[in-house]
């Protein structure tokens, strides 16, 4: 079974980096360029795991997590926050919103994939 990832990030560079890492590792990769698009794409993509940036226009990462957790989908798929800061404040805020885990930028392929593996239980 292919693991489907939905990555939500307004940076084209980060989306590209994620795509290369994850497609290389055999994931099925989908991406959205802001929170609104990500939430909108969610039901169609029906991902096994969501990766989201925090600082984004239109809807930030916290909004994404809250919409996915409390919206019509009420999903419990793992949602991983992609962040440049690793402060406890940010982590606890993300956790409160319903985030499952976090990846600190800059990330390397191995740690990215191991986090996804840890949260989804399978790597493609």
């Amino acid at each position: 079974m292919t693991t489907k990832v939905l990555a939500i990030d307004d940076s084209r560079t980060i989306r590209n980096l994620l795509r290369v890492s994850l497609e290389g590792a055999g994931f099925e990769f989908h991406s959205a360029c802001d929170g609104v698009e990500g939430v909108e794409m969610f039901p169609d993509v029906d991902p096994d795991v969501v990766i989201t940036d925090i600082n984004m226009p239109n809807m930030d990462g916290y909004g994404v997590i809250e919409s996915l957790r409390n919206g019509p989908d009420r999903t419990s798929v793992p949602i991983v926050v992609l962040t440049t800061e690793s402060s406890d404040k940010l982590k606890s805020r993300a956790r409160e919103a319903g985030a499952t885990g976090w990846i600190v930028k800059p990330f390397d392929d191995a740690s990215l994939i191991s986090v996804l593996k840890r949260l989804t239980g399978h790597v493609s």
Binding site: D34, V36, E40, N70, G71, S76
Partner: peptide, 25 residues
């Protein structure tokens, strides 16, 4: 984990209004 999850009707409009917001580039 797979137990039925009652949809929260109150939460629905949130996501819908959000999706109507202006898009980025």
């Amino acid at each position: 984990d797979s137990a039925p999850k009652p949809a929260d009707p109150a939460a629905e409009p949130v996501a819908q209004t959000a999706s109507k917001e202006a898009r980025g580039p």
